[in-house]
């Protein structure tokens, strides 16, 4: 869910077994030392933030955190293909806004265009799976990009 530290995780697979949506998969031996650690491919199957996995982890590789503290990636809108962002478009789609679990904080509508706020986006991938636009080069008009633990995101004001 958050950054799984391959030294901490003991590859017991309990997070995989409790995930009710079968979103969590295990990396295989091709990933070297990270083999056997869990991963969520949110663009394939989104995480619905039920937080069951973090409560069964015995080693603290997944910490029991709140839903809004999760960071799995960051949703990035492709402004060239999003129908609401096209300058000459008469369509106004707000599917990503509607499905976002943190509506009005993570995705906001401003002047009929969706904006992602990187301070709040948890990267769950629900928007990507709901987006109606299929790009020619693959993916949707809103995609999840990986974030790395080295990048410090601005503090979330409470």
């Amino acid at each position: 869910m958050e950054h799984v530290y391959p030294g901490k995780c003991i590859r017991c697979g309990r997070c995989v077994e409790v995930c009710p949506y079968r979103c969590i998969e295990l990396l295989d031996i091709r990933h070297g030392l990270s083999a056997g650690t869990p991963i969520i491919d949110v663009e394939k199957k989104p995480c619905f933030l039920c937080m069951k996995c973090v409560h069964v982890c015995p080693t603290g590789a997944l910490l029991p955190i709140e839903q809004h503290e999760t960071r799995m990636g960051l949703a990035v809108i492709d402004q060239h293909t999003c129908v609401s962002w096209k300058p000459d478009s008469l369509l106004m789609c707000k599917t990503c806004y509607n499905v976002c679990p943190f509506r009005d904080t993570a995705i906001r509508m401003e002047e009929f265009k969706p904006y992602v706020d990187e301070r709040y986006c948890v990267g769950c991938g629900i928007c990507t799976n709901a987006c109606l636009v299929n790009r020619e080069q693959g993916g949707k008009a809103i995609n999840i990009k990986p974030i790395y633990a080295t990048i410090k995101l601005p503090e979330v004001p409470q």
Binding site: I10, R11, C12, G13, P58
Partner: peptide
Amino acid sequence: NYYYDINFIQGWYQSIG
């Protein structure tokens, strides 16, 4: 876990709950 969503027992002999 897979067919009945009963999470009472999870894992195997690396860690079992």
